[in-house]
Simulated assay, not measured.
Amino acid sequence: MYNLLRNKIIRNINILLVFLISTCFFANTSTAQLRNSLNLPDNDDKWYHIGIVIMGTSNRFQISQHPRFLESDSVLVTNPNNNFGFGIGGMHTFRVSNRFEARVVFPQLLFVNKSINYHLRYPESSNQETEVMNQNVESILLGVPVQLKLKSDRIGNFRVYMMGGLKFETDLSSKANARNAENFVKLKKSDYGIEAGIGFNFYNKMFILSPEIKISNGISDVHARDANLKFSNVIDRIQSRQIIFSLIFEG
């Protein structure tokens, strides 16, 4: 009986050892397979990485009328239009923690066109006939957005994030100091504003592709008002409004 009991205990110990060894082997194999299935598994541990941004924009003005507008006998209505543009930039990302990253887009170049529709009364018309005149304002904006990015947990090769921050821009084609400017609204060179958006990280074998959409609103008044110009004196403040869709390629 003693020999039988001892053999049974030894057999149970052997079974337990086999089970533990098999479990450890399976766990190690599963971990290795999971890691092998991840693209760029060590990318999140980098303190800095660089990328390229390609942007498409929807642009418009936010207009506040001047009290002179009510006194105008030629300009009846001013309406901002939605226009499209594009841009490119360099993305610089710095790791702050497992959840947060700081980003700087520099340089950022946006080629945008904004326009205003003016409804004008014919100066010699007695029956209130009007015409519509479209005033285009073309800009080349050199900007430096500074953003803080909040990341979700990584699910396989996918992640969601939100971002927000400030932007600083200068208009390289500003006509604020131009003479003979009767045919356009003049804008100041500098602008600043706030940005907020959401994006998605898709981890590929060689890079991370991140489609992103954000709202970018100017805070400052960019209107260089000229009281002597009929297209300018009826407007008080002009602020920029943009919706930017970006494709970001990061290594």
Rank of each mutant, 00 (worst) to 15 (best):
R6C: 11
N7W: 01
K8P: 00
N12L: 12
I13Q: 15
L16I: 05
L16F: 05
V18I: 11
F19P: 00
I21Q: 10
I21N: 11
T23L: 15
C24T: 10
F26V: 10
F26P: 00
N28T: 08
N28P: 03
T29I: 10
S30I: 12
S30Y: 14
S30F: 13
L34M: 11
L34R: 08
N39H: 15
N39A: 03
L40M: 13
P41Q: 09
P41F: 05
D45M: 07
D45I: 03
D45P: 00
D45T: 08
I50D: 07
I52N: 06
G56H: 07
R60K: 12
F61A: 08
Q62H: 11
Q65L: 15
R68P: 00
E71D: 11
S72L: 09
D73Y: 06
L76R: 09
T78C: 13
N79R: 15
N82E: 09
N83L: 06
F84I: 03
F86G: 11
I88C: 04
G89M: 02
H92D: 07
S97A: 00
R99D: 07
F100W: 10
E101S: 14
E101D: 15
A102K: 01
V104P: 06
P107Y: 06
Q108A: 13
L109Q: 00
L110C: 02
L110I: 01
F111Y: 15
V112P: 00
Y118K: 05
L120H: 02
R121Y: 13
R121Q: 12
E124Q: 11
E124I: 08
S126D: 13
S126Y: 13
N127G: 03
T130C: 01
T130E: 10
Q135G: 00
N136Y: 11
V137Q: 12
V137P: 02
S139C: 04
I140A: 07
G143L: 03
V144A: 14
V144S: 09
Q147D: 05
L148Q: 04
K149C: 12
K151P: 01
S152H: 08
I155A: 12
I155C: 10
G156D: 08
V160T: 04
M162S: 14
M162D: 05
K167R: 06
K167H: 14
T170D: 04
D171P: 02
L172S: 02
S173E: 06
A176D: 14
A176Q: 13
E182H: 11
N183G: 10
N183S: 11
F184Q: 01
F184S: 05
K188R: 14
K189Y: 02
S190K: 08
S190V: 09
D191R: 05
Y192D: 04
Y192G: 07
G193Y: 03
I194Q: 01
E195F: 02
A196T: 08
G199Y: 00
F200C: 11
Y203Q: 03
K205M: 08
M206F: 13
I208A: 10
I208N: 04
P211Y: 05
E212N: 14
I213D: 09
K214M: 15
K214V: 08
I215K: 05
N217V: 06
R225Q: 15
A227C: 04
K230I: 12
K230E: 14
V234F: 10
D236F: 02
R237I: 00
R237L: 06
S246T: 09
